[in-house]
Design a protein around this nucleic acid. Structure first.
Lengths: 256, 256
DNA sequence: GGGGAGCCACTGGTCCAACCAGTTGACCGC
DNA sequence: GCGGTCAACTGGTTGGACCAGTGGCTCCCC
């Protein structure tokens, strides 16, 4: 086997749940090459046969990797033509994020900051919408979630899980599928990127009172209050990470 | 060929840029089965060999489709075990959205509302961040974009493109990769879902003054003002779509 | 000489057939 | 009854052959 198995198969699953395959290795290699800029947008990829040979794998494995790269819109494939690299900054979706760390495109602190900002933005608006239009079942779920949050204070790890469940209930209550799906991406990638963010977020996580207050606002339809409290909760973790950021990559000026 | 080619290969590309393949057909069929609930979370899929036979295609085509389903976290695959259906409401990302229309999970008006809400939420915050920390090159790009916007007023289609370019410049200026990637998903899916949203958005698109004003706020670092103007611009299209929604998917409230 | 038709050498798309490698559970011997 | 073994699944990987679009080169005709 010429291609070493990657440590983790991307964001698909833990190595436990999903052992890396040959196609995973090819996918990871090509993805990183694209994200790091080794393969620039517009560049043609070698033919499938050439890739297979250079990676020392069968062509089918290469094809499966290319299918996944195509799925995340890193490359464009057309029969008869060469496979071309796309400009991921213009085409790819949020699910790509985890690869950005591996690809040395963004450092982890900056990426964490970005995702926390997004979390704050979405979470606050979801809380507002939830207060406005959550149906009874969704309100009950929020109530249950905040109650479970109370019971989790003893252990910080449990609290972290309860926090995710709490916000998931709110996002579900907002009845906005786009928010829900984005929340999924944030959660799965946040777990992979910052396994122990609890240190920085203790202030937020331990503020049981605000969580209960937020739930109350949602349950009683006070959307403006819900938005305010949610923003207060979600933004307090962000500035803490600023001075963790050693280099701000001003990713400007690429015109290609 | 037992499997009919799907009209469009999902959100990968136009049929022009990317003719549907056998694997696309299998992917679409299985995706819709999952999204529509025909295949419930936790259900095992038939074996690859069985699927290949029942679809009348080669096993490799099925495998490529499964790779893509796995990539969007609709299924979980492990060697030796059966492939299982995941709960997409808890696992999948925003890139799934377009499939939600085909899968009869959401009607187009509701989905459009959801994406417009998300656009408003992200766009306003991106404008705020852009005003706070855009680097000179990004500010210049915003300036150029609003200038190009002026020149596009003659044609509503051009205006639509210019609007996307304008917001892209702002999102780029916000220096938040998560926002950027989510913006990409919104743009590509919005184009596919609501090809002619111009009718409802004319009020927004034709408000050149606000666009120029917003750019000014960003260029001069007035983040609060930028946020306010952006919100004003982005929210005005949302309520217009409400009464386009024939069926409100809440438990009660049937109106003939 | 210029332009067009057609061939040919690419590209990716599809298929067949076999075998490898984990998982599971039934079966058989202790 | 318990435990090990083996067979029958599952997906993973490989090789090779052939189909099907594309694009460029060549060659012929005008």
């Amino acid at each position: 086997m010429t291609v070493p198995r990657p440590a983790g198969p991307g964001y698909l699953a833990d190595p436990v749940l999903r052992p890396a395959t040959v196609a995973d290795a090819v996918f990871t290699r090509l993805r990183d090459a694209v994200l790091s800029g080794d393969l620039a947008p517009g560049d043609p990829l070698p033919g499938e046969r050439d890739l297979a040979e250079s990676f020392g794998v069968n062509r089918h494995a290469v094809r499966e990797a290319l299918r996944r790269l195509e799925q995340v819109r890193l490359v464009a494939v057309r029969q008869g033509e060469q496979t071309r690299v796309l400009d991921w900054r213009r085409t790819s979706g949020l699910d790509l994020v985890l690869g950005l760390v591996d690809g040395d495109v963004l450092d982890t602190p900056t990426l964490t900051r970005d995702m926390l900002e997004m979390r704050a933005c979405l979470g606050a608006d979801a809380a507002r919408l939830a207060a406005d239009r959550a149906d009874p079942a969704a309100r009950r779920a929020v109530m249950d979630a905040v109650r479970a949050y109370d019971d989790a204070v003893s252990d910080i790890a449990d609290l972290h899980d309860a926090d995710i469940a709490f916000w998931r209930a709110i996002v579900e209550a907002s009845d906005n599928v786009a928010y829900l799906l984005t929340f999924n991406s944030l959660v799965s990638h946040a777990l992979a990127i910052a396994p122990v963010p609890s240190d920085h977020r203790a202030d937020e996580l331990l503020d049981i009172a605000s969580h209960r207050q937020l739930a109350g606002h949602i349950l009683e339809g006070r959307s403006a209050d819900a938005h305010r409290v949610a923003t207060s909760l979600l933004t307090r973790s962000i500035p803490l990470l600023e001075h963790h950021d050693p280099v701000t990559p001003s990713a400007a000026g690429e015109r290609t």
